[in-house]
Design a protein around this nucleic acid. Structure first.
Ligand SMILES: [Zn+2]
Ligand SMILES: [Zn+2]
Ligand SMILES: [Zn+2]
Ligand SMILES: [Zn+2]
Lengths: 164, 164
DNA sequence: ATCGATATGTAATATTGTAACGATCGTCAA
DNA sequence: TTGACGATCGTTACAATATTACATATCGAT
């Protein structure tokens, strides 16, 4: 995963997540939902949590085992599961995945969220999506039933603006 | 390009565009911008205009010549050009491309737009994106400089809701 | 005519994602 | 316990999407 510039460092990482705690929460969440948090799924989630930016599926595949890669279906299945559980989000404009940053997954289902994606350092920030009036009203006008919304804002994060 | 259902027909096509007129407009636009509307670019744009829904790059590649396909770089280059000119948009969640539906391309540069994308018939509707207050304010808060926004609402169009 | 910038042709390869099918695991009821 | 069933997994192969690299051609301006 390389990014747009190499003229400044990208050490402005976000506060690291407490991976162990998040993994435990995920296990609880699945148990409550009657779903099975298997080792493949947990390992996939772990690799996404550890990353400081959205992760490509093949990065997960490559890092899955200490020695040697996983098979693609193993990881793609886990990614689908985690996305359905609302634990991760797919970033369409990057073909990548990021852990959900919402504090509470107790709804059990995937919420829609927006993302600020830095083109320079690659970091992503999840933002809540309150009602998007403009979209809702335009959809209503067209008789269109919205099921889910992808909103991705590409640009430069504060750190990358400053030292550019 | 197949879609989600086969239990009702998908004959509710949008009003067809006047392809010839749009091609001519595009030529004018490029001339004014000092860009070259070459035959590859024009052919690519034509194929996208003719489609009634977002088109995959490889559909363009396959249909490019009356006999035999184009080479991928030919088409991907043309797609990049057309996107930069604001004549087409890439739909990230579909890996596909659609002609810009804005009436006026005279700004010369690509505007941001939103899309209503029917999961059933595959049709897309481009919607204007007025300021997205929620996103702008959250970006400002984070010191994030937004350069462009992808907004794609997936769901069911009116026709597909009715006969489902 | 020549030059530099832009655009194209071509082959190869990289990246991303699925289909298919049998084996295994977990759960529950007979 | 045992068998049945659905969910999950392992494995192979392949499909779909996209880019790199480099040679060639074209355009427009000296
Ligand atoms: Zn989230
Ligand atoms: Zn950044
Ligand atoms: Zn548009
Ligand atoms: Zn529809």
């Amino acid at each position: 995963m390389s990014h747009a510039c190499d003229h400044h460092d990208h050490n402005h990482a976000p506060a690291p997540v407490n991976t162990a705690a998040r993994l435990a929460e995920a296990q609880t969440l699945c148990a409550e939902a009657g779903e099975r948090m298997t080792t493949s799924r947990l390992r996939t989630y772990e690799l996404i949590l550890e990353a400081s930016a959205p992760v490509k599926a093949y990065d997960v595949i490559d890092r899955f085992h200490p020695d040697g890669a996983a098979k693609p279906p193993t990881v793609y299945r886990a990614l689908s599961f985690l996305e359905h559980m609302g634990l991760i989000h797919r970033i369409e404009s990057l073909n990548a995945f990021v852990a959900c940053g919402a504090s509470d997954h107790s709804t059990g289902s995937h919420h829609t969220a927006g993302f600020l994606l830095c083109d320079c350092c690659g970091q992503s920030v999840e933002i809540a999506l309150p009602a998007l009036g403009a979209v809702d009203s335009r959809a209503a006008e067209a008789g269109f039933k919205v099921k889910r919304i992808t909103l991705e804002a590409r640009g430069l994060c504060q750190a990358c603006r400053q030292d550019d």
